[in-house]
């Protein structure tokens, strides 16, 4: 049984149909990379997966449960699915450690002292121990994005969604963030990434999906999609970005 599954997901904003019947299946421990041009529906698909956007048609299944049923409370679902955004979206009025502790303390009703050991360990794991008391605007882009990842991990999610998390970074800061992803990959985290980092996708993904005009045009192992793409549009896209 797939861990997370999209079945025929349709989503439009006004007349703009962004997802036009997307099927996607993610198994436990798998890393799936969504590639494709801007506007192909990658980000919207991710936002639909953790119910940030209500879908117009289709279903989304998590662990054998249809989580797209109308009227279902999205909060418990979102607590199980972490998400990291392109523009970090840290809370600017809170220090790094406050950013990370807010959700666990409110949702799981744990005190600061109860959370601190685990949270400190997370900061340590990603080389951020000396940045815990800093405010977001005192951190570099790469550090902010790593804090955002720590913030999502502090909820102990079963799946992580990453929405082009290196696109807003200066080139020299991309590496440190990709290292974090590598680390999570090694620890067996189930991950779905929308990404423009083709080299990274090729190196680490279990499955690569090429999105084009709101559908998954082609999917398969990195060797297949990057090495021997079947569709013309996939070839044209890869030619442009590689």
């Amino acid at each position: 049984m797939p861990k997370l599954e999209a079945r025929g997901v349709w989503k439009s904003f006004g007349r703009n149909e962004v997802c036009r019947g997307i099927d996607l299946s993610v198994s436990e421990g798998e890393m799936v990379c969504l590639i494709g041009a801007s506007g192909s529906g990658k980000s919207t698909l991710l936002r639909c997966l953790n119910l940030l956007e209500p879908i117009d048609d289709g279903e989304i299944w998590l662990d054998g449960m249809d989580i797209s049923t109308p009227g279902l409370d999205p909060q418990p679902v979102r607590q199980r699915i972490g998400m990291v955004f392109q523009s970090f979206n840290l809370f600017p009025h809170m220090t790094a450690v406050e950013n990370v502790m807010l959700a666990p303390s409110r949702v799981k009703k744990l005190t600061r002292d109860q959370l601190l050991p685990e949270v400190s360990q997370l900061f340590g794991r990603f080389g951020l121990t000396d940045r815990m008391q800093h405010y977001p605007d005192q951190l570099s882009g790469g550090q902010q994005q790593r804090v955002a990842i720590v913030r999502a991990l502090a909820m102990r999610p079963e799946i992580m969604l990453f929405d082009e998390i290196t696109s807003a970074l200066d080139p020299e800061l991309v590496g440190e963030v990709l290292d974090v992803l590598r680390q999570l990959r090694n620890e067996g985290m189930t991950m779905v990434l929308a990404t423009h980092e083709m080299g990274f996708a090729r190196e680490l993904a279990d499955k690569v999906c090429f999105l084009d005009q709101g559908v998954i045009l082609e999917e398969g192992s990195p060797e297949q999609v990057f090495g021997a793409p079947e569709k013309d549009r996939t070839r044209a896209f890869l030619k442009r970005v590689l």
């Binding site: 979102r78 972490g82 600017p92 009025h93 955002a148 909820m155």
Partner: peptide
Amino acid sequence: SQRSAAASLGLSSADTMRFVILPQAVR
């Protein structure tokens, strides 16, 4: 995007308003 980030963490909309939106807005 601040609301999105808060929602993605599983915070309720009341908590989002109280801890994320209002402190920034009031200032």
